[in-house]
Simulated assay, not measured.
Amino acid sequence: MPMAVVHVHGPLDHATSARLEAGIEQLWERVSGGCLVLDLQQVTFCDSTGLSRLITAFADARQRQTTLLLAALPLFLHRTLEPTGLTPFLPVRDSLAQALSEAKARCAHTDGQQPSS
């Protein structure tokens, strides 16, 4: 199964979320039915537009039967998500390594293959 990682850097806001959307949009065909990991460790700010983009990415992934995992959220982003009630719905993983491990296992399982090391 196909898999891709998007490393998001800097602010995720009204001015920048369109770039993230465009980047993800280019990947959908390639990862459809597979796994997409958004590495958010280097995000420095996230406003409502950025949150909306993450929610839209999750909905788009579900529609394409693709696993989307959010990895390594900075503490401020965890604190932003918690009051919204979205945390139970968004697949957040503590680290990029954890997300990649899960993505590889899911993709391998979907292929009917055993995960490789």
Rank of each mutant, 00 (worst) to 15 (best):
Ala72Ser: 15
Leu68Thr: 04
Phe76Met: 04
Ala59Gln: 11
Asp47Arg: 02
Ala57Asn: 01
Glu82Thr: 12
Thr87Gly: 04
Pro91Gly: 03
Gln65Pro: 06
Ala59Tyr: 07
Val92Ala: 10
Leu73Glu: 07
Ala71Ser: 14
Leu86Met: 15
Phe89Pro: 04
Pro74Met: 10
Phe89Trp: 11
Ile55Asp: 04
Leu86Asn: 13
Leu70Ser: 01
Asp60Leu: 09
Gly50Asn: 03
Leu90Ser: 04
Leu73Gly: 12
Ser52Lys: 06
Phe89Ser: 13
Thr66Val: 08
Thr66Asp: 07
Arg79Met: 11
Asp60Tyr: 05
Ala72Arg: 09
Ile55Trp: 07
Leu68His: 08
Arg64Pro: 06
Leu90Ala: 03
Gly85Tyr: 09
Ala59Met: 08
Leu81Tyr: 06
Arg62His: 03
His78Tyr: 10
Ile55Gln: 04
Leu51Lys: 06
His78Asp: 10
Leu54His: 12
Ser52Asn: 15
Thr56Met: 09
Gln65Val: 12
Arg79Cys: 06
Ser48Trp: 04
Leu54Tyr: 11
Gly50Ser: 05
Ala61Asp: 03
Leu75Val: 14
Leu86Glu: 09
Leu77Arg: 07
Leu90Asp: 05
Phe76Cys: 00
Arg79Val: 03
Leu73His: 08
Pro83Ser: 00
Ala72Asp: 14
Leu70Gly: 00
Thr80Ala: 15
Val92Ile: 15
Arg93Lys: 13
Thr49Phe: 07
Ala57Gln: 03
Leu86Gly: 12
Leu86Arg: 12
Thr67Leu: 15
Ala71Gln: 10
Pro88Asp: 06
Thr67Phe: 12
Pro88His: 06
Ala59Gly: 06
Arg79Tyr: 07
Phe76Gly: 01
Leu54Pro: 13
